[in-house]
């Protein structure tokens, strides 16, 4: 996918610049773009380093685990199929906490672990369960408290307050999350109704 997008971007710009007579500007852009990207890396490297350090402190001190405990009851509501499955609820929690704290890279392994555990309870091996879809929607809604990289980029262009957009950002993420979870609940009951009777996974506990 990216192969196509990337090559298309450059091929289109070369053709377009040829037609509109902006080929000088375009050849300059090649140099500028490459230079620009390193400037961005340098501008964000400091914050990313600092924040990763701070987040490691939270992890090592057990604060992350404390937040996980706090979130568990809420998650049991969102994932009713796995109420008694610690092995599923825990990685989901860690996934959400890592996302909240803006540690996207740390979140993925937990998310994949939860997927693997949920797959063990899946009757039809190649079809997604409601729980899996919910986890995906939570991850794609991207709820995060402090988007460090974003703030660093804003600062790079001299924003007077790089964090001023946070409340708007939280509201927007929450909207996506609420809509997503509501849709999953509605579509999920409709399509899995016939299956849940045979798939009474945790009801026996």
């Amino acid at each position: 996918m990216l192969d196509l997008i990337w090559s298309a971007m450059m091929i289109i710009s070369i053709i377009c610049a040829g037609i509109t007579g902006k080929i000088d500007l375009l050849s300059n852009a090649v140099l500028e773009g490459a230079e620009e990207s390193i400037k961005i890396v340098i501008a964000t490297l400091g914050v990313m380093t600092f924040w990763s350090g701070i987040m490691r402190i939270a992890e090592d001190s057990g604060l992350t685990n404390a937040i996980v405990k706090f979130l568990t009851p809420i998650l049991k509501f969102i994932f009713p199929d796995y109420i008694n499955e610690k092995k599923i609820i825990h990685p989901i929690c860690m996934n959400i906490v890592a996302n909240l704290l803006g540690l996207g890279n740390a979140a993925t392994p937990f998310g994949l672990c939860a997927m693997k555990e949920m797959q063990k309870y899946n009757n039809s091996r190649d079809t997604a369960t409601n729980g899996m879809i919910t986890l995906l929607v939570i991850n794609t809604a991207c709820l995060q408290l402090i988007p460090t990289f974003l703030a660093a980029l804003r600062k790079n262009y001299n924003s007077s307050n790089p964090f001023e957009i946070l409340p708007a950002l939280w509201l927007s993420s929450l909207t996506a999350l609420t809509v997503g979870i509501a849709l999953v609940k509605i579509l999920g009951t409709r399509k899995q109704k016939s299956k849940t009777k045979s798939n009474a996974l945790c009801k026996n506990f």
Binding site: S124, D126, A128, I133, L136, G180, V184
Partner: peptide, 20 residues
Amino acid sequence: YFGSVGIKNIRHTATVALVA
């Protein structure tokens, strides 16, 4: 996510995520 566990039928995941 779905690739990691070999799920092919993702049902309404993409629709819901993109609507969100």
